[in-house]
């Protein structure tokens, strides 16, 4: 009898009683003042990637976001940074003739030879290095040098994490760039340290469950956090998950075989990543982030592990004052082990 109106009844049972404010104006302003007095850690590249995974917002132009970041700190920051942002040199890829499907299948077979398992309830230790055009050092958008960060993460079985991050020495392409960086305040000369922690995750959220070991399920899982089911979005998810997860051989094989089903994946060839490790690179081109971008995963030939992830603008920089092609982000996954 009531079933047809059950949803209407539920609506009327709103515990908040609509949207009226319960906190007094005085309490609200006091809270605001207290919040603004708290410190804000500088965002790191890892946070950026996780953020996109957690809060995927397709259609928002990266051009706008990065341009705002650059101009804000160029105009208003304590240290004047060149508007023309320096970007890392592209990696040198040795193109191969194999099909991407064959390469990925070969790596999947190798991955399956790794039969080790992560014991249930294990704590993890992970380390990676990365850089992104939007990264800030001490709230300053450094455009005169490449200042990568290294992050160590300790993760418990309940999903809670603590991490420490430090900036690495600035990198320059030539002496002139170093001079420009020095004139701009030498931001990043002294390492910047940040650390933070998060509590346990919601175990009911499927995204917090272990990565599937079957290709189709893996694909669905990777794309569950994305607004569109594009291959680039899957690349993004693979990288994001690898920041704080340790996949076994079956999970890696599932990921590789899922990617092998995507027709827009290309084989880019052999390459040495920015940590000096040799790997096989597969890429996909997409403009889902707002600008035409090439997304690349570099995979370990001996075990199918993800070694690195790179994003490069390909044909236009939009409102960004960088040359094209330009690497705008990279991550090297250095360590992932049971702690």
């Amino acid at each position: 009898m009531m079933n047809g109106n059950a949803l209407h009844t539920l609506k009327a049972l709103d515990p908040a009683g609509g949207s009226q404010v319960h906190a007094s104006p005085t309490d609200r302003e006091r809270l605001l003042a207290n919040v603004l007095n708290t410190s804000r850690p500088a965002p790191g590249p890892a946070a950026g990637l996780l953020r996109r995974w957690r809060w995927p917002l397709a259609g928002v132009a990266v051009a706008t976001s990065l341009a705002v970041a650059v101009s804000t700190y160029t105009l208003f920051g304590p240290n004047a940074q060149p508007a023309q942002a320096m970007t890392p040199p592209p990696l040198r890829y040795a193109p191969g003739s194999e099909s991407p499907r064959a390469v990925l299948e070969r790596l999947a077979v190798v991955a399956l030879k790794d039969t080790s398992r992560v014991p249930a309830g294990s704590s993890l230790y992970l380390k990676h290095q990365g850089w992104a055009l939007s990264t800030r050092i001490g709230q300053i958008q450094v455009t005169s040098a490449i200042v990568p960060s290294e992050r160590e993460t300790w993760k418990k079985a309940d999903g809670s994490m603590r991490w420490k991050q430090r900036t690495l020495p600035p990198r320059f392409q030539n002496a002139h760039d170093e001079e420009v960086w020095s004139d701009a305040g030498a931001v990043g000369e002294d390492p910047q340290f940040t650390e933070d922690a998060t509590g346990p995750v919601n175990a009911n959220d499927p995204l917090n469950r272990p990565a599937p070991e079957e290709p189709r399920a893996m694909g669905k899982w990777l794309l569950a956090s994305q607004e569109y089911a594009g291959t680039a979005e899957a690349f993004d998810s693979v990288a994001a998950h690898n920041l704080d997860e340790l996949w076994n051989g079956r999970q890696r094989a599932a990921m590789l075989r899922f990617l092998a089903t995507r027709t827009d994946v290309t084989y880019r060839g052999k390459v040495t990543d920015r940590a000096g490790r040799a790997g096989q690179a597969v890429s996909v081109d997409s403009a889902y982030g707002g600008l035409p971008t090439k997304y690349t995963l570099i995979l370990d030939e001996s075990n199918g592990k993800v070694l690195a992830y790179e994003e490069e603008l390909t044909t236009t920089a939009g409102a960004l004052n960088v040359k094209v092609p330009s690497v705008i982000s990279y991550f090297c996954f250095l360590t992932a082990r049971v702690d």
Binding site: L31, L32, N34, V35, L36, T38, S39, R40, P41, P43, A47, G48, R51, W55, R136
Partner: peptide, 13 residues
Amino acid sequence: AEVFTVAWRRWHE
């Protein structure tokens, strides 16, 4: 209070 504090810390996102 906790939500708005976290939001402030992550305002860059």
